[in-house]
Amino acid sequence: MTEAAAQPADGQAPAGQPPLPQMARLVVEHHASVYRYAVRLSGCPVEAEDLAQQTFLIAQQKWHQLRDPAKARSWLLSIVRSCFLKGLQRVRPLTGSDADVCLAEVPAPAPPDEIDGEKLAAALAELPPEFRVVVLMFYFEELSYQTIAEQLGIPIGTVMSRLSRAKAHLRRRLSEASPPQPVGPRGVARWAAASNSYPART
């Protein structure tokens, strides 16, 4: 993101909105990151395209909020996340607590040398959205646990707990020899059940 791209409107564009060339530069430079993050959050390429379009529309409307051009990527990723979470709230405004989640005993990590993309996507899809968001904020947005807690409005302890559980789940799934299997008394079934009983906002 160059400095010019994030300058406020120069008088040629409607008030509060960037000129199209600057917006185009923003799209060209960041659409891939935005789309990838949307795919990882939603697990669905079609939904991710919608999220990406929605993100840049909001970015165009709220252009004035971007104060530091160097932070354009993180600003856009936070919009993607916000859109995703709003969508979840519309779909299932349910309640629940962390206590419902099965935390398998954490083994000593045995990370595979090569990460299998399909296994990773499947393992992410198995996570309840609230856990997926935290783990993706950590890995994709590269945010600290304090920042994650601030942005989601949840205690630091909850963030650390979700992060640790989600990472344990990824480690376990990725270290399995075969692709993730759906059935299991403490595995996916529990995650899936939990994913239907979690508050969307956290």
Partner: peptide
């Protein structure tokens, strides 16, 4: 996590919408 193929037409679609 970065290893996600991006549709080639996506940037154009977004710009058209904008």
């Amino acid at each position: 996590l970065q290893d996600v193929p991006v549709p080639t037409h996506l940037a154009e679609q977004i710009m058209a919408r904008l």
